[in-house]
Amino acid sequence: MKKEYIYILITYIVMQLSGIIGIPVVAALGIYVFHESKAQMAHIALPSWIVISFIAALIIILPLYKKSIRNQEERISPMPIGQSLLWAVGGIFMAFAAQYAGAIIEHLIGVNAASENTDRILALIESLPLVVIVSSIVGPILEEIVFRKIIFGSLYKKFSFNISATISSLLFALAHQDITHLIVYTLMGFTFAYLYRKTGRIIVSTIAHVVMNTVVVLIQLSLTGQMHDQIKSVQGIIGGFFS
C-alpha cells in the first residue's frame, strides 16, 4: 500500500477518535473564551467538533490523495468522461435501489426500519445546521476515498471483485455504527464499489453517494419539519379549546 494511503487511513481514524479530546476543548473554549452558557455548549460542542474535524481531515486528505494518484498503476481503467457522467446519474438510482432492497430484506427478517445513525445525524443537524455539509458532502467524499479508492482498490489488486467489495462494504457498514442496518449499508457500499470498478473513476461513486445522502437528509428534515408543524397545529387547537 502506498505511503499516502497509509497517511490517509491514519488521518481518517484519528478524525473518528478525535472527539475524545476535541469535544471538551470546544466546550471549554465556548464557555471561557466566548462566554457561552454551559447548557449551550453541551448542546453544540459535539456537532461543532464534527464539522471542524471532518473539514480538517478533508483538507489534509485531499492533497495526499492527489499526490497518490500520480503515476499510479491501477487494475481499473478509467471510462471516458461522457460515459462516466451517465453512470454517475444512473448510479444515484442504483444507490437508492440498493438502499430499498436492503430495507426490504431487513423488513422480511424483522428489523425495525428506524435508523439510529439517521436519527443521530438529524439531531446533530437540528443542533447545528452546518452539520448538513458534513453529512451530505464532506463525509461521502472521505468515505469514497477511504472505503472505495483505498480499501476496495487495494483489495481488488489481489482478490476478485466480490471478495474485495464484500470486505470493503462490511467495513463501510460497520463504520456507520448502526449494526441493526448492516445489510442496507453493506448493499450500498457494494453498489458504490461496483460503480467505481465499472467506470474506473472514484468521482462517479462519490457523486452517487453525495446526491443520495443529500436527498435522504433533505427528505428526513422535511418530514421532521412537517411533524413539528402538525404538532404545533394540534397544540394550537387544544389551546383554543381550553382558552
Rank of each mutant, 00 (worst) to 15 (best):
G139C: 07
V14A: 09
A165I: 14
H181E: 04
V184N: 13
R120C: 01
E116S: 11
G22L: 14
A175R: 05
P47S: 10
Y65E: 05
S77M: 10
I121W: 01
V134M: 05
V217D: 10
V210W: 08
K158N: 13
T166C: 11
S243C: 05
P140W: 01
R201W: 11
S160F: 05
T214P: 02
A123L: 00
G90K: 10
A114R: 09
S115K: 06
V111A: 08
G22V: 01
I238F: 12
P80V: 05
T206S: 15
I44K: 14
P47E: 04
V131W: 05
L17R: 00
T118E: 12
M41C: 07
A101H: 01
Y194N: 02
A45K: 11
P47V: 00
R148N: 07
Q226S: 11
I163E: 01
T206C: 11
Q226R: 07
N71H: 13
I207C: 04
M212N: 15
I105V: 14
I92F: 11
G225A: 13
N162H: 07
V33S: 04
L182R: 10
A56L: 15
I150V: 13
I55P: 00
F96D: 06
I6P: 01
G19I: 04
S37P: 09
S127T: 01
Y32K: 11
I50W: 02
I207K: 11
G139L: 13
I179Q: 07
I60K: 11
H209Q: 06
T206K: 11
R120G: 04
Q72G: 00
L187N: 03
H176C: 13
P140K: 03
F192M: 12
G153V: 05
I23E: 00
I238H: 07
V51W: 03
I109V: 09
A56M: 15
M188W: 03
L128W: 00
S68G: 12
I163D: 05
A98D: 03
L122M: 06
A193V: 12
L171M: 14
T206G: 09
P129T: 00
T191R: 08
N162Q: 06
V216T: 10
G200L: 11
A123S: 08
F161E: 07
L64S: 09
G236D: 04
L130F: 10
A28E: 08
S115I: 13
